[in-house]
């Protein structure tokens, strides 16, 4: 592998990164705009002599990942919004069973079938768990093809470290676009815990049990929920990923993630005002401390959904006297530089 730049498609590099990071099992079902990822895995998992399954449905694919993960494999599935909705039951089981896996959602417009344009309208679903029961996923929101590559690798490590499903929350535009990036080797962290819990055949040891049914509230399920919560609190402390640009002494800080954060970068460059960008990379846990510690009084949230991440921004700033404004473009529309400039003008009048 060289350190030279190459031009690659977003969906393809997710697959390349997963294989490089030792993904041992992939199951998926086709849906636009993430098809090139399933296509890539169909070819390259097989070339690497690892199992690839085009399942008969999304429900089936996520449950195959459940099984592969329980057996100790690094497992991944991918889809786009309607398909991710179908996977929610399985994701809830995997979260409840304390199992690691990687789920890629290249978001498209919704609700229902919506359209096939890129969108950010699955933010609530991703960051609030998505399925039934009290649980969380680690959710990462890359904004470039390079980050799709880097964070796909990282997501396998995070999943194994915390025994939790990790979701890459991209969007159709990121998946479809090609961009220059630098490919690199995967380096497995040394301190990842051994999978002593995996169902690998119990000859010579006590059987491992992986389950999500805890019938009695008083001595079983509540205890299980609280144990899960200890994990979630630990992740909240240890993993708050973000990028800031020009936030020092900014008159106004724009909060944006993924594709739209790059439009905001253009706005910052061309604005004659002191505008900063706060870009959450971990969407759960939301980097609330870093956002709260900014001394700015005026925030503008720009998102490709009808006002979802803005709730996390308001929660983070709760109790401060900062004001929070919103530009929300749903349905696969990307907010334009012009409309952001216009809003800034209004806000800094």
């Amino acid at each position: 592998m060289t350190n030279k730049k190459v031009l690659k498609k977003g969906n393809h590099v997710i697959g390349a990164a997963a294989i490089e990071a030792g993904c041992e099992f992939y199951a998926g079902y086709p849906i636009t705009p993430q098809n090139e990822l399933t296509e890539y895995m169909a070819k390259h998992m097989v070339l690497n002599k690892r199992p690839f399954v085009q399942a008969e449905s999304e429900v089936s694919a996520i449950n195959m990942v459940f099984g592969a993960s329980a057996a100790g494999a690094r497992a991944m599935t991918s889809s786009s919004s309607p398909g991710i909705s179908l996977k929610q039951e399985g994701i809830s089981y995997i979260a409840g069973a304390n199992l690691p896996c990687v789920i890629v959602n290249m978001v498209r417009g919704g609700p229902g079938l919506g359209n096939i344009a890129g969108a950010q309208s699955d933010y609530f679903q991703a960051t609030r768990g998505g399925g039934h029961g009290d649980y969380r996923l680690i959710v990462l929101g890359p904004n470039s093809v390079q980050e799709l590559y880097d964070y796909t690798m990282k997501s396998f490590d995070l999943a194994d470290k915390y025994r939790i499903p990790v979701m890459i929350l991209g969007d159709g535009y990121l998946g479809q676009m090609m961009e220059s990036l630098t490919l690199h080797k995967y380096a497995k962290p040394k301190n990842l815990p051994k999978k002593t819990w995996a169902l690998t055949g119990c000859k010579g040891r006590n059987p491992n049990v992986i389950k999500t049914l805890y019938l009695t509230p008083e001595d079983a399920l509540e205890k299980h929920n609280l144990e899960l919560n200890v994990k979630y609190e630990k992740i909240k402390k240890e993993l708050q990923l973000f990028e800031t640009i020009n936030v020092q002494n900014a008159e106004l800080v724009i909060v944006a993630y993924g594709t739209v954060s790059r439009v905001v970068k253009n706005v910052i460059e061309s604005s004659d005002k002191k505008i900063g960008l706060f870009r959450p990379i971990s969407l759960w846990p939301f980097p609330e401390n870093a956002l709260r510690n900014l001394k700015c009084k005026k925030f503008l949230v720009v998102e490709m959904s009808l006002g979802q991440m803005v709730e996390d921004v308001k929660l983070s700033l709760f109790g401060t006297d900062a004001s929070v404004d919103l530009i929300a473009r749903p349905g696969g529309m990307i907010p334009t530089e012009e409309e952001i400039h216009k809003k800034i003008k209004l806000m800094l009048k």
Binding site: K5, N115, Q176, M178, E179, S180
Partner: peptide, 21 residues
């Protein structure tokens, strides 16, 4: 794609965003 890739071969940065609808 050919244009963007030519730029990358010169070690420049490039993006290519298709209409895919």
């Amino acid at each position: 794609v050919i244009l963007a890739n030519a730029a990358v071969l010169e070690d420049k940065n490039a993006t290519w965003l298709p209409s895919y609808g």
